[in-house]
Design a protein around this nucleic acid. Structure first.
Lengths: 140, 140
DNA sequence: CCGAGAACGATAACGGTTCTCATTCCCATC
DNA sequence: GATGGGAATGAGAACCGTTATCGTTCTCGG
């Protein structure tokens, strides 16, 4: 995972997002998080670091980044959205129901199954989302 | 799908939910919907039918029913929750991105894949959710 | 250095959901 | 059939996450 300011700045530019100081702060904070965070949590952490970033900017930045595919949005909390800086490739998530750790599943071997299941009902699949909920090694 | 008042009443009792007149109204309306609906939509339809059900009751009933596994909750709208009366068995959903039709996929052949993917990262899977988004036969 | 447009911060507004509380309903018991 | 107590309900306030507004600040090409 890219974590230096240089890397993050390039990550933004590469996705057509101007790398401003505020956006870098948000992205750095996301890179620091191993799990997913809500916009409010992220804002809180930024304040702790004496950032003067406004809540609106945090929301605007997260919306922009998810729109450009730079970050993932998870809605497993029902209502509140969670954000996470992930790898570029298509992948799914494994969530620990106890400690809320999030792990990426890199290999998605489901394309055939998805296509077949969709076809069976006359659909053409354009996208699919999978979330596996369970207990991680530490919480078992 | 059970649709008579008698059936719906039994469905409630079987899941330890007292079958009151209000709850039956909510459940009947859900049975009438082929796709998923939000709490607000459902409340609107009830009002159109001259039901005096309050919004709070609709929310309370939906929360209770989803907790007992009588109805499914979909959060594909990001923010707003959608509810649907589905079959009892484990299943997944196919969503049309254009007309928002919802179709159940009855056979979930993913258990092995899920177990393996979880194991690979030290997890024990207890649950999984899959949503396939695409275009239905009519919208293609 | 200058100017135009993008980005930002503070805060109000919005919308979905939950809470509060007084009233009503359900049902076991008499 | 009357009665009492706990569950359910309706109306609306409260709550909270998110989005819109607007005046100010920053960015960057010229």
């Amino acid at each position: 995972m890219a974590t230096t300011e240089q890397d993050l700045s390039e990550l933004l530019e590469r996705n057509g997002v101007r790398a401003t100081a505020r956006r870098l702060e948000v992205l750095e904070e996301l890179a620091r998080e191993s799990d997913d965070v809500t916009a409010q949590q992220l804002w809180g952490r930024l304040r702790e670091r004496n950032s003067r970033a406004g809540l609106a900017t945090v929301y605007r930045t997260l919306a922009l980044l998810s729109e450009r595919g730079v970050i993932d949005v998870l809605s497993h909390h029902g209502g509140e959205q969670c954000y996470r800086l992930c790898g570029d490739a298509h992948h799914h998530h494994l969530l620990c129901e106890k400690c809320h750790r999030v792990v990426e599943i890199q290999e998605c071997g489901l394309d055939d199954w998805v296509t077949a299941a969709a076809k069976q009902h006359g659909f053409v699949a354009t996208e699919h989302r999978v979330e596996i909920i369970g207990l991680c090694a530490d919480c078992r």
